[in-house]
């Protein structure tokens, strides 16, 4: 699993001591860590495709953690975010969780809890990354279908019979049967149920 080795724990905090101690902890626990003393620096380094998770401070001069979360959401990032904050500001925590934060931790934190969150966040990211990859593959396959094949694919996935599709498209059931086998081949599916699953992935 080459991807998992490359997974990086990104840490963004304006406090140098927090960054340094977290880097040491993560390194000691066997994670690959990368630290940034501000959201701006992280953004200039950020590549959406790189797997990992983000440990993010909320209170920082300049851009706050919540603002960075918003920017990442806007660009479609799936990086799970573990927020860390100096004091339990409940409205902020609620907001962060509503906006899709993975976890919320108060400083000083328990290392076991933090590392547990990190492990879970990384596996979530990996899973999501795989789903995205799979979806992208399905989309690529769908794009290779001819317009007619696409019409047949959608209807088969919806669970319609060959006769119904033939009457809807004004074609003979025999022709529909030919298109259906082309679709199965191009979509790498063996049954109507599998086709339905592939279609759901793209939704």
């Amino acid at each position: 699993m080459g991807e998992e080795i490359n997974a990086t724990v990104y840490v963004v905090d304006d406090d140098e001591a927090i960054l340094d101690s977290l880097q040491l902890l993560l390194k000691t626990a066997g994670f690959q860590a990368c630290t940034y003393d501000g959201p701006e620096k992280f953004l200039s380094d950020y590549e959406p495709t790189r797997p990992g998770c983000l440990i993010l401070d909320i209170q920082m001069p300049g851009m706050t953690g919540l603002e960075l979360q918003e920017i990442l959401a806007d660009v479609g990032s799936i990086l799970p975010i573990i927020f860390i904050t100096g004091h339990a500001d409940i409205p902020i925590a609620v907001q962060a969780m509503k906006d899709g934060a993975f976890e919320f931790l108060q400083k000083p934190f328990n290392d076991t809890v933090l590392l547990d969150y990190v492990t879970k966040a990384l596996s979530l990211n990996e899973r999501q990354q795989k789903e995205i990859t799979a979806t992208q593959a399905v989309i690529a396959r769908i794009e290779k279908l001819s317009p007619r094949e696409k019409q047949v694919f959608e209807r088969v996935a919806q669970g319609k019979s060959g006769k119904v599709i033939a009457s809807e498209l004004n074609l003979s059931p025999r022709t529909i049967e030919i298109y259906r086998s082309h679709v199965m081949l191009k979509m790498q599916a063996n049954s109507a149920v599998e086709l339905a699953n592939l279609m759901n992935l793209t939704r």
Binding site: D15, A17, I18, D20, S21, L22, L24, L25, T28, G86, H87, K107, P108, F109, N110, D111
Partner: peptide
């Protein structure tokens, strides 16, 4: 709290 958090993390490391 910042240095205290750092101390905790250093100690745990």
């Amino acid at each position: 709290n910042q240095p205290l958090a750092a101390i905790t993390t250093y100690a745990q490391s």
